[in-house]
Design a protein around this nucleic acid. Structure first.
Lengths: 204, 204
DNA sequence: TTCGTCATGTAATGGGTTACATGATTAC
DNA sequence: GTAATCATGTAACCCATTACATGACGAA
C-alpha cells in the first residue's frame, strides 16, 4: 500500500523523500496520519533495489539543478527519486489487483486517490467491489441491530446504528460514482471540460 | 486495545477464547474484521501472567466441577477466563486514559462500545476529545479543498469532499451525544452492575 | 548563535495477520 | 465415517510506528 502510493506519486513527478511524504499527506487528505520516515525510506530503498524507481544523488548525478552552489556539496543531500518503466508497469499491476483486500477502507481510499491515472474499466471494478463490501457490512449491521436489542447495551447499539448510517451514505456515494462512470463522467463536473491534464488518461 | 476489549468483555462475564472472539466481533459490529486467534490467545496469556485474568482449565484446575455427570454436553478443553479485581482496576485505568491516541477511529470505537461500564465524566471526556479530533480533521480538509482546485485532480477532491461530509456527520453525532450526556439522558446504567438495562434506547 | 525547518536515515518495537498444526464434538 | 464446527495454540511475517541520530540551511 505504501509502495502503491509512492509509485503513484512518483508517476506524477520525480521527488525526494521529504516532499513525497508531504504530498502523500495532502493527497490522502489526512485520512491516515502522514506516514513516518521510518517506513518511507526503507520503502524507497526496497523499491529501488526492485528496479521500480531510481535515485539520483546530487553528487553522483546532477540532474540539471540550477547550480547555485559553488563548491563540493552545495545543495542539501536531497535524493530525487524517479519512477522507471518497470515501476509504471508495477503501478498498473497493483491498480488492477482486485483481491478482496483491495476493498478495505484504507486500500480503497488509496486506490481511489489515484483514479485519475486508472482506466475506467478498473475504476468500475474497484468501485463495484467496494460497493459490494460496504453492502455486506451494512447487511450484517442491519441483522445485528434487528435481533440484538436484548443483549446489546444502548451504547453499543448506538455505535452500530451510526455505523449503519455511514454504510448507507457510502453506498449511495458509490452508487452515484458508478452511474457517473458508466455515463462517462468524472466527479465534480461533466466530461466536456478539455482541461489538458498532463496525465492524459483522465477522460479518454 | 485488544487487552482493553478483552477485559471489557470478561468484565461482563467469564468466557473462553473462542466465545470471546465471537462476542468481540458482535460488539464491534464488524467495524474491524474479527481479531485472529494468533493475537487473541497470546493476549490472554499475557493478561493472565499480568494477573488481570485467571484461567480455569477443566482438568488441572477445576473450581466448580459441579455436574460432570450430565452427559448432554461433555465440555471440551475449554479454558474459561475470569477477570480479577486487578483486571477490573486495569480496565478502569485504560478507560480513563485519555491520551491523544484514544481519539483515533479504532480506539474511540472500542471505548465507546464499553461506555455502558464507564463513568459519565469519562464518557464526556472521551466524546469531547473525539469531537475535537474530528473537528481538526474537518478543518484541515476544508482548507485543503479550498485551495486545492488547481493542483488536486477531480477524484482526489471528490474523496476529500466525501471525507469532509463524513466528518460533518460525525461531528453532529458527537454533538448530540454530548448534549444528551450532559442532560443525563443515558440508558439505565449506573455504577452498579444492573444488567437489566435493555429498556432504554437513545432518543430518551 | 541559536532556533526552526528541511532532509535522510537506523533500531527497536508494536500490534496485529496468515498459515500451520492439533484435536474434540456434533450433525448428517 | 466424514464433514463442519468448536476450540486452542505456535511461528513466521507484515506493515507500520516511535525514538533516536545526524546534519545542512535560512532567518531571527
Amino acid at each position: 500500500m505504501l509502495d502503491f502510493a509512492i509509485l503513484g506519486l512518483l508517476h506524477e513527478s520525480p521527488m525526494h523523500g521529504y516532499a513525497l511524504r508531504k504530498q502523500l499527506a495532502a493527497k490522502l487528505g489526512m485520512i491516515r496520519a502522514a506516514i513516518s520516515y521510518g517506513s518511507l525510506y526503507p520503502a524507497l530503498r526496497r523499491l529501488q533495489s526492485a528496479g521500480f524507481i531510481t535515485e539520483s544523488r546530487p553528487d553522483s548525478d546532477d540532474a540539471s539543478s540550477h547550480d547555485q552552489s559553488s563548491h563540493g556539496v552545495g545543495k542539501r543531500a536531497r535524493i530525487i527519486y524517479t519512477i522507471t518503466a518497470e515501476g509504471k508497469e508495477r503501478f498498473q499491476e497493483l491498480l488492477a489487483e482486485a483481491g478482496p483486500e483491495a476493498f478495505n477502507d484504507a486500500a480503497f481510499d488509496v486506490r481511489f486517490a489515484f483514479f485519475a491515472r486508472t482506466d475506467r474499466q478498473i475504476r468500475l471494478r474497484i468501485l463495484e467491489g467496494r460497493r459490494r463490501r460496504v453492502e455486506e457490512r451494512r447487511e450484517s449491521l442491519r441483522q445485528m441491530l434487528g435481533r440484538s436489542s436484548e443483549w446489546l447495551d444502548a451504547y453499543t447499539q448506538e455505535l452500530q446504528r451510526h455505523g449503519l448510517e455511514a454504510c448507507n451514505r457510502e453506498a449511495r456515494w458509490l452508487e452515484d460514482l458508478i452511474t457517473a462512470e458508466r455515463a462517462g463522467l468524472t466527479p465534480g463536473q461533466t466530461s466536456s471540460e478539455s482541461r489538458s491534464v498532463e496525465s492524459g488518461n483522465f477522460e479518454k
